[in-house]
């Protein structure tokens, strides 16, 4: 599957997983089209996988959307106060599910993978935009919040 089709698949799976797990309905958009990021505090979640193929998936979402995500996942009202760990955990789990679905779609049901535990960190907007040039993100929006996702695959090195 070429890179463009892989990105198309990733954005479809991101939308599907948000819908199925959290009853949030993202729409695919072109990157940065008409968006302002001044107000967003972002969380970056990374997950490395190995097995029949090695690589990494990344999900970047605003903390406010994470709060809504966590509340919907748990069937609770969005917390007024700060419960960052709950937000991080929800974002990690969503990326876990997205990665599992992507790997099956890309490499078939016979392929075997081992997924590391996802890592969540705060990400400054400036840092994200600095990295974006080399990145390969797909972008969706839900309730005016942006969701960015990327998957990178490592090429296998064969030794003689």
């Amino acid at each position: 599957m070429n890179e463009s089709k892989r990105k198309e698949l990733l954005s479809e799976i991101v939308c599907k997983v948000f819908e199925q797990t959290a009853f949030l309905f993202p729409e695919k958009v072109n990157f940065l089209e008409g968006m302002s990021f001044d107000d967003f505090e972002l969380i970056s979640v990374n997950l490395e996988f190995r097995g029949d193929k090695e690589g990494e998936t990344v999900l970047i979402i605003p903390i406010d959307l994470c709060r809504e995500l966590a509340a919907n996942l748990l069937g609770e009202d969005p917390a007024e106060g700060e419960d960052r760990e709950k937000c991080y955990d929800a974002a990690r789990e969503i990326l876990n599910i997205i990665t599992g679905q992507m790997l099956t779609e890309l490499f078939g049901q016979k392929a075997l993978f081992s997924l590391d535990s996802p890592r969540a960190t705060e990400l400054a907007c400036e840092a994200f935009f600095a990295g974006y040039e080399q990145g390969d993100y797909v972008c969706c929006t839900v309730d005016d919040y942006p969701i960015f996702a990327a998957m990178s695959l490592k090429e296998k090195v064969y030794e003689h």
């Binding site: 599992g100 790997l103 075997l112």
Partner: peptide
């Protein structure tokens, strides 16, 4: 209960 969809697994 897992995200892993591998039939081999």
């Amino acid at each position: 209960v897992s995200t892993d969809g591998s039939t081999t697994r």
